[in-house]
């Protein structure tokens, strides 16, 4: 990275961070609205507590708490809304001024998402601690696992971002891409492990899920923190995620090149 790129990054980060702090109230609302994993967690905990042996598929109520709190936190880091923004920009013509800048709008969105994470982090951390204390959730104390988590999750975020970016770019052809986005979210929630730890899924679903990137994005990092996965799983997951990331990176570049040519610049 040369000095020039570094400066671009710093400027983007500073402006996007300022932009995101304006929306801090909305960020909190969005954060509190994503409760699917918490609801599922509460039900699994209740079922495990009332099950004959006090556990379901090897998970006690406390294991479920640990897993679902980790899922909630990880899903917060993986939140991506770029598809909505791109779809809006293409439909309303607000993409035009962004095209005039000497930098691909991709970087503005990407850095913007990271800047939002910084705004999100303090409250998220407080909530995570409260949840963990209330439920007695327990996490690994091995430093290497936490470092592996910190390596895996940014990659998972980048992949999810590229995936959503490609969906947003569909707006060049279909004008409104929001519904495709919902479809992919459902796959992500179901196969990623928001509903239950993936090992509790029916075998057939587990097999299908392994062919998608979703279990490695969400379920794997959480299993790592709760001690249900080890570093060799992470290594495998990392390379699978990397391959998907490269694939979607290329797809994005291709779609962008063809899409911009089709762009009608509504309102210009």
């Amino acid at each position: 990275m040369n000095a020039h790129t570094w400066r671009k990054f710093r400027v983007l980060m500073a402006t996007q961070f300022a932009h995101m702090t304006v929306y801090r109230a909305e960020i909190v609302i969005w954060m509190l609205s994503g409760t699917l994993s918490l609801v599922m967690g509460l039900i699994w905990m209740q079922q495990a507590a009332s099950a004959p042996g006090g556990e379901i598929g090897g998970y006690t109520a406390r294991d479920f708490a640990s897993y679902f709190i980790a899922t909630w936190g990880t899903a917060q880091i993986l939140v991506v809304w770029v598809a909505w923004e791109l779809s809006f920009d293409v439909r309303q013509g607000t993409l035009s001024p962004k095209l005039l800048r000497p930098i691909d709008p991709f970087w503005m969105h990407y850095v913007g998402h990271w800047a939002e994470r910084i705004v999100r982090l303090p409250l998220m951390f407080v909530l995570l601690v409260i949840f963990a204390v209330l439920t007695g959730a327990q996490y690994t104390t091995q430093l290497s696992h936490w470092l592996a988590y910190l390596l895996l999750v940014p990659l998972a975020f980048t992949l999810r971002f590229l995936l959503e970016y490609c969906i947003g770019l569909l707006a060049f052809w279909f004008e409104a891409a929001e519904n495709f986005q919902e479809l992919v979210w459902v796959l992500y929630a179901a196969l990623g492990g928001l509903l239950a730890p993936l090992s509790l899924y029916p075998a057939a679903v587990q097999k299908v899920a392994a062919f998608t990137p979703f279990p490695y994005m969400l379920g794997l990092p959480c299993d790592l923190l709760t001690g249900k996965a080890d570093l060799s799983d992470v290594l495998r997951g990392f390379f699978i995620l990397l391959a998907w990331t490269v694939g979607f990176g290329l797809l994005r570049a291709l779609m962008w090149r063809h899409g911009v040519r089709k762009y009608g610049a509504v309102g210009a």
Partner: peptide
């Protein structure tokens, strides 16, 4: 936005499937 219609039906089914 007719193309959206098909995607909307798909996402309805996917929602129910979840």
């Amino acid at each position: 936005y007719r193309a959206n219609f098909l995607a909307a039906i798909l996402s309805s089914f996917a929602n129910l499937a979840t």
